[in-house]
């Protein structure tokens, strides 16, 4: 490793714990706008930690993916999401399928499970961020939990994006990021997918006058 000042690893660990904390905060929030702000914060943490990893490991291409994160996840997506919910008037996620304390408990179990699963990988990793692989996996699982327990279309999408954040964090902490071409491809897919979802919101609202996914439960096996 070229140069790795002693403060790098503790601060990376700190950032990783913040990421996990935000994931839990997302589980407990009911206002959609708060969720978007939290999502933007997650992006900001990812940006900072990627920069730190790039600096300490000397992998220059990580700066590019950090820049991509900043543009896409901290600025563009939250901005579009804010505009979308204002236009659609979908500020509240009125109904939860499971109440918040229960969700939190399930979340805790998931975190423990994630750490157990990541243990063998962490032992093998040579990156300075190896301790955070478990956290990355936990972020993925918590985002998944959020998608399951929420009913509004927008909330599910934020959960989906948060899951992508976890995946990105996993890639950086386990392997210092995927090759640049792949990162670009993933970012492109994410962006296109997001636009399609935007189109979808309007179609769903036009048909159902609401973004509540309860209306989307007609197709079942009788």
């Amino acid at each position: 490793m070229p140069h790795s000042p002693h403060w790098i690893v503790p601060s990376l660990n700190l950032l990783a714990s913040l990421l996990l904390l935000i994931s839990f905060a997302m589980l407990s929030r009911r206002r959609t706008q708060r969720l978007i702000t939290l999502f933007a914060w997650q992006g900001a943490i990812l940006f900072t930690s990627t920069c730190l990893v790039a600096y300490s490991s000397g992998h220059k291409e990580l700066y590019y993916s950090a820049a991509l994160t900043l543009m896409l996840k901290v600025i563009a997506l939250p901005w579009i999401l804010h505009r979308l919910i204002r236009r659609l008037g979908a500020q509240w996620d009125s109904e939860l399928l499971v109440n918040i304390p229960t969700t939190m408990l399930v979340g805790l179990v998931l975190v423990i499970f994630a750490f157990g699963l990541a243990q063998p990988i962490s032992l093998m990793a040579t990156t300075i961020t190896r301790n955070t692989i478990g956290i990355a996996l936990a972020v993925i699982f918590l985002a998944f939990l959020m998608m399951i327990t929420r009913r509004k279309a927008i909330t599910q999408v934020i959960g989906f994006l948060a899951m992508e954040n976890g995946l990105f964090f996993a890639a950086t902490s386990a392997t210092y990021g995927m090759p640049m071409v792949i990162e670009l491809g993933i970012a492109l897919d994410l962006l296109v997918g997001f636009f399609i979802l935007g189109i979808f919101f309007f179609q769903i609202r036009e048909q159902f006058d609401s973004l509540d996914l309860r209306h989307l439960e007609a197709l079942k096996e009788e």
Binding site: A153, F200, Q203, I204, E206, Q207, F208, L213, H215, L216, E217, A218, L219
Partner: peptide, 11 residues
């Protein structure tokens, strides 16, 4: 763009 097709696509 029917209700059922939107639901299917979302799923």
């Amino acid at each position: 763009r029917t209700r059922a097709s939107l639901e299917a696509a979302w799923k």
